[in-house]
């Protein structure tokens, strides 16, 4: 199967209010006529070791997650392979996944983390209105990023992080 140039990986628990941000973002990309022609989409509760194989097949990877205390409305930054190992099977960072991809498949996709700020994490499928607004802003930004040939240079601040 021929892959697109970019894959968007959204993750989180959609049953936990704003933790749904990553998955909601991925679903919007999947439904968008323009973006879905240029990006494949994957979503899950969390990142998993087998995702290292998936990302090895793309040139660009955009991870999308909710952020607990990050910048508002969102931050978009380049990330690199790095060792961040948890002591349980319950979490794997995007950076660790990139490191695993590099070691196992000798591939180093260009990777970004789109961290959309969330506020409430209780049981329930209702996202807060603030988080929904942040999602919208992040989505608009991503649209420009893709239209710009997957280049963030026009809209990125000096630290490599975009704050809207």
């Amino acid at each position: 199967m021929k892959h697109k140039r970019c894959i968007v990986i959204g993750y989180g628990n959609p049953g936990r209010q704003d933790d749904a941000l990553g998955i909601e973002f991925a679903l919007r990309v999947e439904k968008d006529k323009h973006l879905s022609m240029l990006c494949d989409v994957h979503y899950d509760y969390q990142l998993n070791i087998e995702d290292s194989l998936t990302i090895s097949e793309y040139e660009i990877v955009v991870f999308v997650d909710a952020s607990l205390d990050g910048e508002q409305p969102f931050a978009f930054e380049r990330i690199s392979p790095s060792l961040k190992i948890s002591f349980t099977t319950h979490s794997l960072s995007a950076e660790s996944l990139l490191a695993l991809c590099e070691e196992l498949y000798r591939k180093s996709p260009i990777a970004y983390m789109l961290a959309i700020r969330g506020y409430e994490w209780n049981l329930g499928s209702e996202m807060t209105s603030e988080a929904a607004e942040n999602l919208l802003k992040a989505f608009r930004y991503f649209n420009r990023f893709v239209s710009n040939g997957f280049c963030e240079s026009e809209v990125t601040c000096s630290r490599g992080v975009l704050f809207h």
Binding site: G12, D65, A66, L68, D69, T89, S91, W121
Partner: peptide, 24 residues
Amino acid sequence: VEVAIRAYDPCLSCATHALGKMPL
């Protein structure tokens, strides 16, 4: 200590995995 806990693979952080939530 962690090896002893790991043997049981307890379900510690089932609910949310948002960035900024360090497991330990």
